[in-house]
Write a protein that binds this DNA or RNA. Structure first.
Length: 414
RNA sequence: GUGGACGUAGUUCAACGGUAGAGCCCCGGCUUGUGGUGCCGGUUGUUGUGGGUUCGAAUCCCAUCGUCCACCCCA
């Protein structure tokens, strides 16, 4: 077992039991998207590298060090998508949908980031995301947040909290940023090293430093929510009122920041404390400037993404589906052939069926048992001549001799 | 990318410088047409990989790969 080909680091196989959990999350999400009238899109995994450089931000960790990028045989600079929003905007523009009214999209698929793997943090992972184009009003924000919340609720997840913030807009953020820089400049020498580098790279990140000492010092730091322009302030109030109207519990966390450059106004996260440092299970926000910055007309938009594996980690273990019936054959070649046709007939009637392969009855029943089937359909020489089968209920042990058609009815009846 | 813990049959673990073991799983049997709990028997490892120290290494050292944890960052 030692010298074997292994999957690439941080890229894990989804085996049947794990996949059944994913499918459960996906089915729940699809139903929620249907209720909110979001439609699925399926977008390429490979995109031009420039797309992410221009949208996510060149200085972000995602672009500067986490992208799988390469030059292909045709000298194209391409990369595996590290997130879904940029590609969605690209597709939205490419399809010429900017004058088509509201577009509400969702997607489910793999993303790639070359980070150091941990539990709940993989190099290939799956995101369930939604993007809503063309609506700037705060009701839309409230509804998108509500949809996110309903999604995690429908999964039955407990001990989650929705945190929201406003990141302002190009009208008010620069002034606030300067205000914050002035404040931080006075404390430059008492903050931790990472904070000091952040003052220059991304000052708003300083606010959510995890060092207790820094947090202590930053207690009275100026916060964006208190420096919003009137339009942003009204918008943020409107979002909160909308959430209250819909009875969605939330807390304002003025320290939520966004790693990606394109966000403005509403930013939100759904967080659990059950996943260690990877507690953010879903995150998103408004990105009103992105469509324009990628060459389209000014188009407001809001979206979010949830980590499928992270959601699945919070769910109980699930088993892959068991077959309904195991066909057991005992007898000569004619019996075996008839049993194969029986199995085929069951499948044509929509019944999930395995064939135990003939041979010893005991062995075949052990297979049926391990597969946790509901019924065994037994065919021996006697049954073949009588044109009957034995149907055994594996839970009760009851067994009946009856024609195949009757057996199928019985299986369906349960 | 930085720091730390760990790596032994398919799997969960034991053996802590002196011949690699157990439970579970798997396969077969317990009078050859009936499973789950029982009993009997059986297969399984270059101890992640590659070096080094030693008379002798799963055990000590170095490197490498991988998993996990924290940081960074993020879903």
């Amino acid at each position: 077992m030692a010298k074997q080909l292994r999957s690439v680091r941080g890229m894990h196989d989804g085996l049947p039991n794990e996949v059944s959990r994913w499918q459960h999350v996906e089915a729940t999400a699809r139903e929620m998207f249907r209720r909110y009238a979001f439609n699925e899109v399926r977008l390429p995994v490979l995109e031009p590298t420039a797309l992410f450089v221009r949208s996510v931000g060149e200085a972000t960790d995602i672009v500067s060090k986490e992208m799988y990028h390469f030059v292909d045989q045709g000298d194209e600079h391409v990369c595996l998508r590290p997130e879904g929003t940029a590609g969605a905007v690209r597709a939205y523009l490419q399809a010429g949908l900017t004058r088509s009214g509201g577009q509400r999209w969702f997607y489910i698929g793999p993303m790639f980031r070359r980070e150091r793997p941990q539990k709940g943090r993989l190099r290939q992972f799956q995101q369930i995301g939604a993007e809503c184009f063309g609506r700037a009003d705060c009701q839309t924000d409230a509804e998108v947040l509500a949809m996110s919340w309903q999604l995690v609720q429908a999964l039955g997840l407990q001990q989650l909290r929705l945190e929201i913030n406003s990141l302002g807009c190009p009208a008010c953020r620069p002034a606030y940023r300067q205000h914050l820089l002035n404040y931080l400049a006075q404390r430059r020498h008492t903050l931790c090293d990472t904070c000091i580098t952040r003052i220059d790279s991304n000052p708003m990140r300083v606010l959510d430093c995890k060092e207790a000492d820094c947090q202590q010092q930053l207690q009275d730091a100026p916060e964006m929510v208190n420096h919003l322009c009137q339009a942003c302030d009204e918008h943020f109030n409107g979002v909160q009122q909308g959430l209250q109207t819909l009875d969605i519990p939330f807390v304002v966390n003025p320290r939520i920041v966004r790693g990606l450059d394109y966000y403005n106004r509403t930013a939100f996260e759904i967080i659990t404390d059950q996943l260690g440092a990877q507690g953010t299970v879903l995150a998103g926000g408004r990105y009103d400037g992105l469509v324009e910055s990628l060459g389209g007309p000014a188009t407001p938009a809001i979206g979010f993404a949830a980590g499928l594996e992270r959601l699945a980690l919070l769910l109980p273990e699930m088993q892959a589906k068991s077959p309904d019936v195991c066909v057991i054959a005992s007898g000569d070649a004619a019996v075996l052939q008839a049993s194969m046709r029986h199995a085929d007939a069951l499948r044509q009637q929509g019944i999930a069926t395995i064939h135990a392969g003939g041979g010893g009855m005991k062995r075949q029943f052990k297979i049926a048992n391990r597969e946790a089937v509901a019924y065994c359909l037994i065919l021996g020489t006697d049954e073949l001549t009588a044109e009957q089968v034995q149907l055994k209920d594996m839970n009760t042990g009851e067994q009946w001799a009856l024609p195949l058609s009757e057996a199928i009815k019985r299986i369906h009846g349960n």
